[in-house]
């Protein structure tokens, strides 16, 4: 039982460190909720995220960035989890706050389905293929209703050795 609590504490600390390590995550104040191995990204609303002040709607670029952050963090988190589960030196690196190199975006396509309203947004990524070199992900963002997504991303990401 004690081992499980320690493992949970180590995971919570690693996720917080990984999130904080990326300045742009901090800038947008993106946070991640963790349920099992699945992350839910949260983007709190702020006035400076608005693209068109007359609607007002979230900036398309912010929504695209939020989806891309979610994809990259899911991949980085999967790597970190695998390293922690492996134990030994790799787990010690994570415990010391050193993470594997961030994956790099190769290409993304974002479809904008509905205007982003001035309220909190959520996103979840699904890894469709985790190859050795390239990963393919789908990400959905929504606000008040999970089944009414505001935007969807699909993208390819290069894994770093």
């Amino acid at each position: 039982m004690n081992g499980l609590a320690e493992r949970e504490a180590a995971r919570a600390q690693a996720l917080a460190r990984l999130t904080e390590a990326v300045p742009y995550n901090r800038h947008l104040a993106v946070r991640f909720d963790r349920l099992g191995d699945e992350l839910t990204a949260r983007l709190p609303f702020r006035d400076d995220l608005v693209g068109n002040p007359l609607l007002p709607a979230l900036h398309g670029g912010v929504i695209g960035a939020f989806l891309e952050i979610t994809a990259l963090m899911q991949l980085a988190w999967d790597q970190a989890l695998a390293a922690m589960d492996a134990g030994g030196d790799t787990a010690a690196e994570i415990a010391a706050g050193r993470f594997p190199p961030m994956p790099k975006t190769v290409d993304i396509t974002v479809d904008y389905l509905r205007p982003g309203r001035p309220r909190e947004s959520f996103a979840r990524a699904r890894v469709q293929k985790a190859g050795r070199r390239v990963a393919h992900l789908h990400v959905e963002a929504w606000q008040e209703e999970r089944l009414r997504p505001i935007a969807m991303l699909r993208g390819n990401f290069l894994m770093q050795d």
Partner: peptide, 18 residues
Amino acid sequence: RLVGDPETGVLHGGVITA
């Protein structure tokens, strides 16, 4: 503030997207 990779200091892809 807009960096995506703290190791390299490169701007986040999301900034380029915006």
